[in-house]
Structure formats: structure tokens, C-alpha cells
Design a protein around this nucleic acid. Structure first.
Lengths: 230, 230
DNA sequence: ATCCTGTTCAAACGTTCGTTTGAATCATAC
DNA sequence: GTATGATTCAAACGAACGTTTGAACAGGAT
């Protein structure tokens, strides 16, 4: 049989994953039913359970296929910078650019659904669902550890706890910006769907400004006290 | 009948609102059923529909009762600063402190459920549910408009579009920090539930650093060009 | 005692959910 | 052709959902 006559479209698995990804983004996990997914994918209702086993397993697979690539790229960008640095500590801006630049690059990819996924991911960071969160943590474990080590080396004078907090804040700013829900309708009608490439320099300025901000007095004081005691 | 013998606990409405608030935070809106709510509140299943009409109306009321107070306090803090300034433009740090300081103050209130609500609110900013988002936008309309006006006055040389973006970023960093899901388990075990009052100076340093960061080159260039053309 | 209004209660409503089933259909190898 | 394993299909499953119902109960005024 000629390849062109294969029932319809690409294989069922991919059709399901793509439909699920966009529906999860629009409606959330719980509010997206199997019937909505199989309807949009134009496959039979039973196909999800046949190919993935369960709805939860489908959710995991939606994330796994993208996150594997995303985190590989992030590590790749970090390693490229480290290779250039020849063992010297990296500049913080390079580290931040490696992590968030790759994220924003995927968020700008509207061709292959990367943008859809990043918006979904941004929402999922605040998802209460326990098994989703555990899965996210596992997928991120290595990349978080590597980037944190790089930041610790880059900022030896800043307490590690503070670096953790600021990375946390940066993750929040990025997620929110990419998810782009604009729940408060700040951009009332004006810039509803901006070109996401223009987001990159804006976000990067903001993140680096936050990262480089002077430490709060409280922290400085406690460090001064510690230094005095020594 | 003596007041102490009234069936059980305080009135049914408040019991339902409190139970719903904490369950929504833990499980999300969709995953929280009426039976879970009435079970935790120890009231009859039909009580929600009797007192509120529907589940959606209950969700709205959960937010309304807190947001009304929160946004009143935010406006109050802003007006207090404006009164001190005597018509002069406010310093950006004062404006940011008015908005986010009030938020963090509520987030630190574990006594009356304010902390629970702020974590719920942080998650809700990324909630896809349409009617929730519309409701949020309405509740925030006035306070957003007032704070934006103040920021425009405070930063007359910064393009308004840039101010909008940075406020957007700040909202993201705060929401994420307060929701505190730590999906990536950055703080693996170490600081699971930190004292939220210590969050305040850290977040404020970060936010102000981001707000005051130099504009991205792209924006500066386009402004220079515009100035040249004039 | 009687009525009235507000509230609680157990039970049921119809709908939708995720999942399972067993037969039908396909592609391929013999 | 026929057998084999993978996939699709229509139909049904039990469970859980939000909501409605009508009776039971409460306290206060007449």
C-alpha cells in the first residue's frame, strides 16, 4: 500500500499529544475531558487508553516529550558557555541567558507548538496536582542542580539562599510572562498577542536587574554581624 | 435559646467559604467537589446551593470577600503616600511598596486565612477558567488603573508600554513567590515553609531591581531614532 | 396553638467522567 | 488464501459530578 493512503493524517499518538497539549493549555487538566481530546484529534475515544494507558499517563507524556528537549537545550547552552570560559566562573548574565533564553526561544516557536507548550508549562508551575508536580521536579532535577552550581560559582559572595530565592523570583516572572494570561487585563486590548520575540530583551533586562539588585538590608546586616563575630 | 447551643460552630456561610478557600488552594477549582467542601465544612451537601446558588457563585464569593478588602487596602496605601507627597510624583519604590507590601502583609496573615487566600490567588492568576478571569479583571480594574497612573507620573521618561511590562513581570514574581508551590523543588526540604515575613524584603529588593533595570537596547535605540526624527 | 420564614436534611435527578470490553478492521508474513 | 498481531471502533460500565426536590425542623410573631 502506498504511504499516502494511511487512514488519515499522521499517527494517532502524535495527533492525541498535540490535541491534548493545546486543550490542556486552554482549559486546564481537569476541565479537559478524554472526549474533548479524542474529538479534536479525530480519533476514537478508546485510543488514549490504548496508546497511553490512562489520562494521567497522557499528561506525563505531553510534558515528557517537550521537557526532555527543553532541558537538553538548556544544559547545552550552559555547557557551551562553560566551554568558552575555560574553567573560569561564568558571568551571571550568561547563565541567566542560557536558562531563560532557551525557554523564550521555545516560547517563540509557534510553528511546532512550542509556544503552546510553554504557555501550558507556565501554568503548570502553579498546578496543585500532586503527581504533575512530582513529575516536574524529577524532570528538572539535573538542570536545576547544574544551573545552581554555576550561579554559586558566579556569585561567591552572595549567600546561596539568596541566589535560590532570586532564581525562584525569576522563574515566576518568566512563567507569568510566557503564560501570558494577563489575568488583570493590564494590556487591555492593546497588545493582546505581541510578537514573543520582543518579549525576550524586555524580560532579560528585568531578570538581570532583579538578580543584580542590592541585597535587602536585613541580609546585609546579618552578614555584617557574622563577619564582625569572625 | 442561649447563644452557645446554636447547632454547631459559626454560621453555615462562613464555614463553607473557609472550607472552599483552603480546598481550592490545595486541589484547584475543578478537582474540588461540592461533597469535599460540605464534608470539610460539616454542613449538608445542599447548603452550598442554598446559600450561594451554584459552585461558580461560591467561587466568586470566595474571591470577592477577600479581594474587596485587599484592593481597598492597596488603594489606601497608595493614597497615604500621595497625601504625604503633596501633589509631587511618588517615588517608584513607594508605589511598588504600596501594592506589593499590602499583598505580602495579607500573605503573612496565617491567623485569619489570609495566607491561604493569597496562595490561592497566586495560582488563580494563571487559571484558564474564563469566568474566573473575567471576574478577577473586574475586581482589579480600578486598582490597576490607579497604580498605573501613579507609575506613569513617577517615571515620565519611561515608555508606558515598558512600565506595563515590568508591572506584569513583578506580578509574576510575586504570585509565584507567594503561591510558593516550588514546583522545581529548588528548596529541596531545606526551607519548606519559611516565615513569610522574611520574604518581603527579599522580594522587594528583587522587584525594585527589575523595575529600575536599564531599558533593553532595542527600546533605547527605537527611542533614540524617534528623537532624532523629531 | 397556628402560621410564617429561614434553614437543614436525606434522597434522588440527569449528566458527564475515565475506563473497559469484544468485535471489526487493518497490515504484514507465511 | 489464511493466520497473526496491532490498531480502531461502537457501546457500555460504574463512579462521581453539580443540582434539585420535598419533607423535616427551627425560632419568633400573631
Amino acid at each position: 500500500m502506498s504511504e499516502a493512503t494511511a487512514k488519515q493524517g499522521p499517527d494517532t499518538r502524535a495527533r492525541i499529544l498535540n490535541a491534548a497539549e493545546s486543550l490542556f493549555m486552554t482549559h486546564g487538566f481537569e476541565a479537559t475531558s478524554m472526549r474533548m481530546i479524542t474529538g479534536q484529534a479525530e480519533v476514537n475515544l478508546a485510543a488514549v487508553n490504548y496508546h497511553f494507558g490512562s489520562k494521567d499517563a497522557l499528561i506525563q507524556e505531553v510534558f515528557r516529550r517537550r521537557l526532555t528537549e527543553l532541558n537538553r537545550d538548556r544544559l547545552g547552552a550552559l555547557e557551551a558557555e562553560e566551554a568558552l570560559a575555560n574553567g573560569a566562573p561564568l558571568k551571571p548574565s550568561k547563565i541567566v541567558a542560557a536558562f531563560f533564553g532557551v525557554s523564550l526561544k521555545m516560547a517563540a516557536d509557534t510553528e511546532h507548538g512550542g509556544a503552546t507548550f510553554m504557555r501550558l508549562l507556565g501554568r503548570t508551575y502553579t498546578e496543585p496536582n500532586e503527581f504533575v508536580r512530582q513529575f516536574l521536579a524529577e524532570e528538572y532535577a539535573e538542570v536545576v542542580q547544574r544551573f545552581m552550581s554555576a550561579l554559586y560559582r558566579a556569585l561567591p559572595d552572595v549567600p546561596r539562599e539568596e541566589i535560590l530565592w532570586r532564581f525562584h523570583f525569576m522563574m515566576g516572572a518568566m512563567s507569568y510572562a510566557i503564560a501570558g494570561t494577563d489575568a488583570l487585563q493590564l494590556f487591555a486590548g492593546d497588545f493582546d498577542d505581541e510578537d514573543p520575540t520582543r518579549l525576550m530583551p524586555r524580560l532579560m533586562s528585568f531578570l538581570l536587574g532583579g538578580l543584580r539588585a542590592p541585597l535587602p538590608e536585613e541580609v546585609i546586616e546579618s552578614r555584617a554581624i557574622r563577619r564582625d563575630a569572625a
